[in-house]
Write a protein that binds this DNA or RNA. Structure first.
Lengths: 189, 189
DNA sequence: CTTCACTATATCGCGCCGATACATCAGGCA
DNA sequence: TGCCTGATGTATCGGCGCGATATAGTGAAG
């Protein structure tokens, strides 16, 4: 998931690790942060795989000084052609992980680079997933009384409200996608 | 977290791995599953630490057959005195991880075994956390237009609704905790 | 009589996290 | 002037938890 996110972000512009992480948090709305403990190793992995390349930035005073003293300086990465390709593959290859909280969030964040039909598949897959959760919670709350702790019940109540709300939200998104798709078709023919 | 959850669950009754996992999913309302890939190793760890002990069940027909043929059979675990102690410590030792989605959920699931003052601390800590998230999303949505992708904005809208709802839910829980605390005081004096 | 779904235990590789360390630089304030 | 805090910036380590996979017994449906 981080790999996908990095590749997606680097479409905007070349960036260094710290910046990447900040943009990522903004994008995911503080709901997901990706620690440096996973970011830097992933960057290495991508580098070794040739999906990104290090772009030595125009050496300026501060950095030159840092480098000449053997200190660590900014390392800027940019997307390679293979990286672009890989991102496109990943965006289209929708597995079940695209439907869980985290995966769905990341996919959605890069929807503008995702083909319309794939967007639909993801939205509908997510809806199915959330509906299942909703039904699970409903039946759990339905089996009234039944040895369920009061706090647990409250937890389930909140979960149920959240899923109901998200299903409605998804329905709106799906409907608006359909409208747009229809418009495109009308323009085409 | 899994360790805490297992120790908590075993207060109900001795159980084997598969059962533990099922009870855990029920408890967390399908919002958290804990795969076997983490459950069994954790059970081992707890066993080695002496926090749980294996309780050879009264050998019945099916199991005896299985055992005598050298096959795998049910392994039932029960809480040791040290395990009980450890759970009590963990329930009271509230770190920042008790406020994130996952940690909070698990703690709440064992609230009935948690002292009232600690319950309060957790509830209020969680509220602070969710309020921060809410404010982050509000300001992100407030900075109107500003290079934010349409889908990303939708994601933030949903996140904002969820945090608002959760804060209200927490307020109700906190209020009801306070009422109960007052009642207890009235009864005591 | 076979196939399916459920019960049940276990391992492996690896993604990701939290803590920690180190270093530079800007601004506030004493 | 000099100090401290907070942001910028890169990096590593141990360990938790996941998904995939293997294995195997059981009962019910068809």
């Amino acid at each position: 998931m981080l790999e996908f996110a990095i590749l997606g972000l680097l479409h905007e512009a070349p960036m260094h690790g710290y910046e990447l992480r900040k943009r990522l948090s903004e994008l995911l709305g503080t709901l997901r942060a990706f620690s440096y403990g996973s970011l830097y190793p992933t960057l290495r992995r991508l580098l070794k795989a040739g999906l990104i390349v290090e772009e030595t930035p125009p050496v300026e005073s501060a950095d030159r000084a840092a480098r000449s003293w053997g200190k660590r300086a900014k390392r800027v990465y940019k997307l390679s052609a293979e990286g672009k390709e890989r991102f496109a593959e990943m965006a289209v290859d929708v597995g079940p992980q695209a439907y869980d909280d985290e995966g769905f969030g990341v996919h959605l964040a890069f929807f503008s680079r995702t083909p319309a039909d794939v967007r639909m598949r993801i939205l509908e897959g997510r809806r199915r997933r959330v509906e299942e959760r909703r039904e699970g919670l409903r039946s759990s709350l339905g089996r009234a009384g039944e040895q369920i702790d009061r706090y647990t019940r409250e937890l389930h109540r909140l979960g149920l409200e959240h899923s109901e709300r998200e299903v409605r939200w998804l329905n709106e998104l799906i409907a608006s996608e359909q409208r747009e798709q229809k418009e495109r078709q009308d323009n085409d023919q």
